[in-house]
């Protein structure tokens, strides 16, 4: 019996352990198995409350970095792009923001800042964005009152997540452009570049 037990243990180490090691990708990080698969969702599930030419609703939100961020603090000095994403640990969102990590220079050329916003709480956003590497832009939590900022723009979906939306606000605080994407798809970079180029110089 003891011999059989030893053999089973031997079999486990020789066969199962190498198998377990081999199925874990060498590029650990946002591992595919850590992403919750949402399936295909209703493309847009809200009605905008703002329009181009409106003054953007002001807000103050806590950030993953620790300091609260107030939109109106940028008035007079910086153009602002708000990037709302639906939820942490979901497809599309989990590559959209890492991709924006390559846009720092593009934003700087247009005197613009990028603010990432999600309705997730700070601990969730901390864990999620830590997997993305060092993001150069602030990540803000619109968790409580739940989705209040998304609601003020009219981009809070009926399930409590936000739309995948980009709001372009010039340095005077006026909305220059709004992109509410199909939630299942990532907005192409060229659309962002084109709108950044249209920003006035502060």
């Amino acid at each position: 019996m003891r011999d059989i037990m030893i053999s089973i243990r031997t079999l486990f180490f020789l066969l199962v352990v190498p198998l377990l090691v081999s199925v874990v990708p060498s590029h650990a990080g946002l591992r595919p198995e850590s992403i919750y698969q949402t399936g295909t969702l209703k493309p847009v599930d809200s009605i905008l409350k703002v329009a181009v030419g409106d003054e953007a609703p002001d807000f103050t939100l806590p950030s993953v970095g620790g300091d609260p961020i107030t939109l109106s603090d940028y008035r007079g000095t910086k153009n602002v792009v708000l990037s709302f994403v639906p939820a942490a640990w979901t497809p599309v969102c989990s590559d959209q923001w890492p991709g924006y990590n390559l846009l720092e220079q593009m934003f700087a050329e247009h005197q613009a800042v990028l603010l990432g916003i999600s309705v997730d709480n700070i601990p969730t956003l901390y864990a999620w964005t830590a997997e993305m590497g060092d993001l150069w832009y602030p990540i803000l939590s619109d968790f409580w009152p739940h989705g209040a900022v998304a609601q003020s723009f009219g981009i809070l979906r009926s399930d409590g997540t936000a739309e995948r939306a980009l709001i372009f606000i010039d340095y005077t605080g006026v909305i220059q452009h709004i992109i509410v994407s199909d939630i299942n798809e990532r907005p192409p970079l060229e659309d962002i570049a084109a709108q950044l180029a249209r920003f006035p110089k502060p």
């Binding site: 990080g29 590559d95 959209q96 890492p98 991709g99 590497g133 970079l189």
Partner: peptide
């Protein structure tokens, strides 16, 4: 690769 892949950036 993908422009949106942080591992590709690192690699």
């Amino acid at each position: 690769f993908s422009m949106y892949c942080p591992y590709c950036h690192a690699a």
